[in-house]
């Protein structure tokens, strides 16, 4: 990265000299240990059930990408307001666009063979409850410093403060899961279920969704320009 270079353009007062960088310790022993544990755990899981080993691998890959890329769903929603930067917002939109194509391909594949379409239980009814819930989640994740994946990633990274978020996230999820039936009966099931391919056809649904994402992308770019030149 360019900003960690040794040449300094900022003149800092002599009263406080630059904090000396501690020499980096080799982390090879830890890395080897973790690698062995991961392989052993993977082999152990695949011996029990094929599905779970696959989830383990995809989970690790997802975590790695999340950590390296600093991909943060919280920041994607928060930074446009806080800093005016929308790079993460656009990254999330690109991810949505890619998954739109991928998931539609999977679903269409099943549909064209006359098989039941997977993942249809995630087509949840939309109602005012969605809006209120989304708003509450948004407030919560900004205060907690991360959504579910972000919190997990940062705890793994060694940011111990967010163990607090993780603990209460787990507690809240368990309580929520326990009461979910009631919430579903009373609130969420009142809404209408919309599965876009039913309304616009498979091709139309992809085009419309991608168009909306594209428009949001343009809006995000314009927003950043407007904020930078204010």
């Amino acid at each position: 990265m360019s900003d960690t270079g040794t040449t300094s353009t900022i003149k800092r007062s002599s009263s406080r000299s630059r904090t000396k960088r501690k020499p980096k310790k080799s982390q090879l022993p830890q890395a080897t240990f973790v690698l062995i544990v991961v392989i052993a755990l993977g082999l152990f899981l695949s011996g029990r059930d094929n599905g779970i080993a696959w989830f383990f691998v995809t989970g690790l890959a997802f975590g790695y990408i999340l950590q390296r890329s600093r991909f943060c769903f919280t920041a994607s929603m928060r930074d446009p307001y806080l800093t005016g930067g929308t790079t993460l917002t656009r990254a999330v939109l690109i991810a949505f666009a890619i998954t739109t194509i991928g998931f539609t391909a999977i679903k269409y594949g099943y549909f064209s063979k006359g098989l039941p379409i997977p993942g249809m239980s995630y087509v949840a009814p939309i109602s005012l409850a969605t809006v209120i819930g989304a708003f509450m989640f948004g407030v919560g994740m900004v205060i907690a410093g991360g959504c579910a994946s972000g919190t997990l990633m940062r705890v793994g990274e060694g940011f111990t403060m967010q163990l607090l978020s993780l603990t209460f996230f787990t507690v809240g999820s368990l309580i929520g899961a326990n009461h979910f039936g009631w919430w579903k009966d009373v609130f969420t099931s009142k809404g209408t279920k919309v599965f876009l391919p039913d309304v616009f056809g498979w091709f139309g649904a992809v085009v419309i969704q991608l168009l909306i994402i594209f428009l949001l992308y343009i809006a995000a770019e314009k927003w950043q320009d407007a904020k930078a030149n204010h």
């Binding site: 943060c72 930067g85 940011f159």
Partner: peptide, 27 residues
């Protein structure tokens, strides 16, 4: 906080300030 390492310099740069990041220790 590694996330702040990303958004703090980004904001300061777009706001027009001179920014440098030093890694003083692991993390």
């Amino acid at each position: 906080h590694s996330c702040a390492m990303k958004n703090l310099p980004e904001w300061a740069r777009t706001d027009g300030h001179n920014v440098e990041v030093d890694e003083v220790d692991d993390g």
